[in-house]
Structure formats: C-alpha cells, structure tokens
Design a protein around this nucleic acid. Structure first.
Length: 189
DNA sequence: ACGCGGATGGCCT
DNA sequence: GGCCATCCGCGTA
C-alpha cells in the first residue's frame, strides 16, 4: 500500500477508533457521471457496533442498516432528517456492524462541480464541512450504498499523507443523544 | 459570533 | 407517533 492506492479491506478490519483516526488525511473520491470530485478527510467519527447505543447497528440488521453489517471497506450510506445523505466506511469483520462516519473533507479535485452542487455555500470552506454537505457535493446518495471503497467501484478511499498525533484532536461525537460523552470523534486541524 | 427552530421523510415501535 | 450520526436562515450581540 502506498500513497494514492485504495485502502484495502484489511485496513478496515480493525478497531473502529483506530480506523477513524487513521482515515484522517486519506482521500475520498467519487467518479460521478458529471465528473471526478475528491477531498481529503479531515473529520471522522467511530460507531463501535451493536453494543454502542448511538450506532445504527444497535437496532439490528434492517433494510436501512443492511450494508453496515457488510464486509470491511463497504460504503454505508443513509438518509437522515428527510433531506440529507451521510456516508460511512464499514469496519471490522463481515457481519459485525461497526462503521466510521466521514464528517468533513477539504476540497481537492472538482471544485467547480462542488460549487454547482452546493449553491448555498458562500465560500469554498463551506463546501464539504459537514456529513450531509460533503455527500451533496460529491453526489453521494442511496445509489452508492453498499459499494466497495477498496477499489473497483466509482467511490473509493485512497491512502494519503501520514498525519502526526499533534495535528489530531479527539472529542465526543456530535449530534447524538445516546453515549454522547464517548470520545470517538477525530478532527484534523 | 453565537443560539434557536423549522424543514422534511423514512423507519422503528 | 415520534425520533433522528443535519443544514440553513433568522434572531440577538
């Protein structure tokens, strides 16, 4: 595995917090029908599995959460608040039900297309700084739910520069009510 | 620079 | 029926 190659399934088949930490600096890329859009991952959250009360997998394997229980390196895309899509990378072994939510990116490729898909963004800093915003900008919807992120699909995560611990902040997860004090959010500054 | 509430729909109970 | 792993606009400073 070197810089720019897709991260393999073995990268994801590990402790969710470690994967969330190490996804910082990696690159999420969507080869959409309208063009390639990519960004550097700068914020993530770990959802540990069925025993984590804030995790979607805590309700079991339903139609909505189906792909969260898929093999490591699968995209789990869900619809929330009647308007927004959010994208996760499935972690741990096939059938377990853990994932890492991608919460923010820094723009790399496809700036004009991002701006067209995010007309409300008043400057480029607001294009990808939220889980719903980055899915809108990249064109990620239910159509990408279940795709492998490990290569061979149009949605991939590729290795980036190594990020030193001094550049990483760890905080509680955002926007949840259960297990809201667990420090599983990773931010690159 | 904050804080608050409405939008909006699928899904679980 | 009520709850969301959110975003945006409007209000007060």
């Amino acid at each position: 595995m070197s810089l720019g190659d897709p991260l393999p399934a073995a990268f994801y088949d590990r402790d969710p917090a470690a994967v969330a930490r190490e996804l910082l600096g990696a690159v999420l890329r969507h080869d959409s029908n309208d063009g390639v859009i990519s960004g550097r991952i700068v914020e993530t959250e770990a959802y540990l599995g069925p025993h984590d009360p804030a995790s979607h997998s805590a309700v079991g394997r339903t139609a909505r959460t189906w792909h969260m229980f898929g093999p490591p390196g699968t995209a789990y895309v869900y619809f929330i608040y009647g308007m927004h899509w959010c994208v996760n990378a499935v972690v741990r072994e096939d059938g377990y039900g853990a994932a890492v939510l991608i919460r923010a990116l820094e723009p790399l490729e496809g700036l004009p297309l991002m701006r067209a898909r995010r007309p409300k963004a008043r400057h480029d800093r607001e294009l990808l700084n939220g889980p719903g915003k980055l899915c809108a900008a990249l064109g990620i919807t239910r159509a990408q739910d279940g795709l492998p992120l490990t290569g061979g699909s149009r949605l991939t995560i590729c290795a980036g520069d190594v990020v030193p611990d001094a550049a990483v902040a760890v905080t509680p997860r955002i926007g949840i009510s259960k297990a809201a004090d667990w420090p599983l959010r990773y931010v690159l500054r």
